[in-house]
Structure formats: C-alpha cells, structure tokens
C-alpha cells in the first residue's frame, strides 16, 4: 500500500517534470530538455553495462557515434526514411556491439577499460580520417529532418515529445530487464563470475547480449542526435564524451537506473545554468565529479533515499550511505 502510494507520487513528480518545458514554452529550454533526453538514454544504457553487469566499458560514446553516422549516411546518402534509418542504425550499432563483445570477453577490469578506450579512440580517428565517408574533421552537414509517418518534425517541442517517449520506452525496457531473471543473471556476473557460472549463467552469452542491447540504445540516441542537430562531427563522440557519461551514472548512482535519468539531467542542465561562469565551468565540472564520488558513493538517489530512510526510522542502519559532511571527506582522504 505504502509502496503503491510512493509509486504514484513518483509518477506525479515525473509527469510534473516532463511538463515543465511546455509551461515555459521556450525554444532554448526545449533544446536543453532534448539534449538531456539523449544523454538519459545513453547513460541508462551505459549503466546497464557498467553498473549492473560490471563490464568496464569506457568507450560508450563510440556506439553513440556509430548510430549517429549510420543514421546520417542512411538518410542523407541512401535516401532512407527517418524511421527506417533510426531502427537500422540501432540494429547496426548492436551488431558492432556484438563484434566488440567477442574480443572484450577476453578482457577483465582495467584491461577491458583500456581496450574499450582504444575502441573509442579508433572510432574517432577513423571518422576523422575516412573523409569520403564521414566528411572528416568538418563532419557531416545537412542531415535530413526526421519525419515520422509523414509528419515532419521541425519544432523543438516535437523533438521533445519524441525524445520523452524514447526515454520512457528505454527506461521501461531496461527496468523490465533488470527485474527479470536475466537482470539477476547480469548482476550476478558483476558480483562474482565464478559463482554466477556455478549456478548456471552462461557468462559469454550474457555479456554479448548486454553489449548488443546497450549498443542498440546508444545507437538509437545517436541517430536521434544526428537528425536533431542535422550536423555531426567526430568531436561529438570523443573519449571525453564517454567520460561525461560515466560522470552521469556516478552522480545518479552506479547500478541505479532512475539515477541515470537524474544524473544525466543534472549534468546537462548544470553547465547551462552556470554558463555565466565561462572559463570556470570546466574547473567546477571536474571538481564536481571528484566530490560526487567522494561524498555520494551511492549517487544522488542513494543519498536522498538514505536521508528519507533515516528520517523514517530515525536510526542509523548498517550499510546506509555515509553522512554528508566535511568530516567524511577528510576521513575518506
């Protein structure tokens, strides 16, 4: 009963947040909201891979880029309609994800991190150098505007509606996956591969599938991004972008799916809000990441629910998130 009420409350909050841009009805606000949506999909998919399955994938932006370039080329140069290109680019990215998974199976921990970073770097170098295909460092301009079943999407508001639907679908898909036996299997791989195998989990199969499905959604968001901005270049998908995504999931909480939505939202909106700081923005951004990891090891959602829990029970349970104070930083250092 209480759980149900909480759920309804959360839904009301979600609807309220989603409707904010409509109330403000400003192009710039819609733009930020659309960008947040794109990053929400990316960080949710990265979280399933890194947070839930424990695969140190440090090159997620490459999948984002593969989806973007695939979709741009399919529509621009082959003349496919948006919807087809959108789905095909997701599938193509999933296919590349599977190809990457096969060698990645052999690597663990930091070696997988290094390998996937190299993959990200290779993707960027190729997209810079294969000029005839990718337009080189200047990028690909004139990517057609999307049209969904005959309706041309041109207004920021329409993009916003579309991306919101996409975020909700992505959330539902990953949430269902995590709740199911397959989600338990993924988490068991993260916790202890040997024990997971000993209870019947086919690790190889699961790792390949998780690479495929997370790459699929990264590819979809890449496709959306390409058609939304109608221009892409290699710098959009650099290694630093992968690191940004990692910061988003750390802020929301590693292995916390709704957290990724919150984390992506915050880290897209905050730099916009602090635009007036100009050169200090990067400095603050970097320090924010440091402080998040030191102070909120469970992410912002874990911290808030820890606070709520403390209020309810008014007692400190073992394993609850650490207190938010200067002493904790000093202690942790």
């Amino acid at each position: 009963m209480i759980r149900n009420r909480k759920y309804i409350l959360l839904q009301i909050i979600a609807v309220a947040i989603i409707s904010v841009p409509f109330i403000l009805d400003d192009k710039y606000i819609f733009h930020i909201a659309v960008m947040s949506g794109i990053y929400m999909i990316l960080s949710m998919s990265l979280n399933v891979q890194l947070g839930f399955t424990g695969l140190f994938s440090f090159g997620h932006a490459a999948f984002y880029g593969i989806g973007a370039y695939a979709s741009a080329l399919l529509t621009r140069d082959l003349g496919l309609p948006f919807v087809a290109a959108f789905i095909l680019s997701g599938l193509f990215t999933a296919f590349i994800g599977t190809l990457i998974a096969l060698p990645a199976l052999r690597l663990k921990g930091i070696f997988l991190a290094i390998g996937t970073m190299c993959f990200n770097e290779i993707f960027c170098l190729l997209s810079t150098n294969l000029e005839s295909l990718t337009g080189g460092p200047a990028g690909l301009p004139d990517i057609p505007v999307p049209s969904v079943f005959g309706l041309e999407i041109t207004q920021p508001k329409d993009y916003y509606i579309l991306i919101t639907l996409l975020v909700l679908v992505t959330y539902k898909v990953f949430d269902n996956l995590i709740k199911s036996r397959h989600g338990r299997a993924l988490t068991s791989i993260r916790d202890d591969e040997i024990a997971a195998r000993a209870i019947g989990v086919n690790i190889t199969n699961y790792k390949i599938k998780v690479f495929a499905i997370t790459a699929f959604f990264a590819g979809l968001s890449g496709s959306f991004f390409a058609h939304y901005l109608s221009y892409i270049s290699p710098s959009n998908f650099a290694l630093s972008e992968s690191f940004n995504l990692m910061a988003m999931i750390a802020l929301g909480g590693i292995g916390n799916l709704p957290g990724s939505i919150v984390g992506a939202g915050i880290l897209v909106i905050i730099p916009e809000v602090f635009r007036f700081l100009q050169d200090y923005r990067e400095l603050i951004y970097g320090l924010t990441i440091v402080l998040i990891v030191l102070l909120l090891p469970q992410g912002i959602i874990g911290w808030i629910s820890g606070l709520l829990h403390r209020q309810q029970t008014s007692q400190d349970l073992a394993g609850s998130p650490k207190k938010f104070s200067v002493e904790t930083i000093l202690h942790r250092i």
Binding site: R184, T187, I194, A198, G200
Partner: peptide, 20 residues
C-alpha cells in the same frame, strides 16, 4: 561464494536461473 549485492531471497531466485 555469495553475491555481495544480493538479498537472501535474490540468491535463491538466482538458483532458478536454469529452470526458467
């Protein structure tokens, strides 16, 4: 070898992996 992040119930659920 238990799964550090799993609840007790989840451990047993994990046992059903191959039966589902």
């Amino acid at each position: 070898r238990l799964f550090p992040s799993f609840s007790v119930l989840d451990h047993v659920k994990m046992g059903f992996h191959r039966r589902a």
